[in-house]
Amino acid sequence: MEQLLQQLVNGLSLGSIYALISLGYTMVYGIIRLINFAHGDIYMIGAYVGYVCMRHLKLGFFESLIISMVFCALLGILIEKIAYKPLRNSARITALITAIGVSLFLEYSTMAVATATVRTYPADVLINKTFSPIKGVIVNIQQVYIFIITIALMLLLQFIVHKTRIGKAMRAVSADKDAARMMGINVDNTISYTFAIGSALAGAAGVLVGIYYNTINPLMGMLPGLKAFVAAVFGGIGIIPGAFIGGLTIGIIETMVSGYVSSLYKDAVAFAMLILILLVKPSGLLGKNIREKV
């Protein structure tokens, strides 16, 4: 029982990080129907920016978090403008391959600049203390931070999407790009905002993971990126609460599998889950079925 609770705590922290990445995936897919493969690498870049801020500029946690988020937001806008915008009307496969290209570019450029060496975050940026709410279950304060920050960002996102003008524009563009344009919505700007917000969340996730796991490397974004995509599909792609639930679910299942089965199989589980969802309910947990018009 205690082990189960312990795994649940660990799963929630890991799942929070997946959820943050997953939100960006889902927003971008919702608005331009693109699986933004490079999203996981923006998360990696976020982790590196955080690293530079804390290690070299000796900034505190929150300053670093915000700088990283802003940097990633700008990077997201830049990528969209350079690589994805020219392809907005071409086949989706073309856009997907481009996204893969951007992803490789980010990974290996980072490797060229920062080398492939694993870097370690300073251990004392956040209070690194543990407490035990229940006997046998150990919680690190960092885990609490991660969870709270995730929830806060997620609520902020919900607020932006549902209560602000930008959010309204996003929803309009995602429902029908052409109609939105005719209603006077600046579609290009709206897509830029979407990339900015999604990338900022990924940047935050990068810093949090740096704190939580300590080590970062240029290829760290690949697997979590894919898993975050799985999370987005699981929750119903394009649906914000769905991505959140999906992220937490995958995080928890993964820690359960590494705790009870074998940590070597934990990566397979996410993909097995993905395939299962795609086959049983491709629209995801909260999604609606849409059929092709003939």
């Binding site: 699986i35 894919l226 990566d267 397979a268 993905l274 395939i275 086959l279």
Partner: peptide, 24 residues
């Protein structure tokens, strides 16, 4: 089972299967 899926969903499913083969 997977070829019922279309476009990028199929791409992700095949990617998933290949990863599973690798992990096995």
């Amino acid at each position: 089972p997977t070829l019922r899926l279309k476009g990028d969903y199929l791409a992700i499913a095949t990617l998933g299967f290949a990863e599973i083969i690798r992990i096995i």
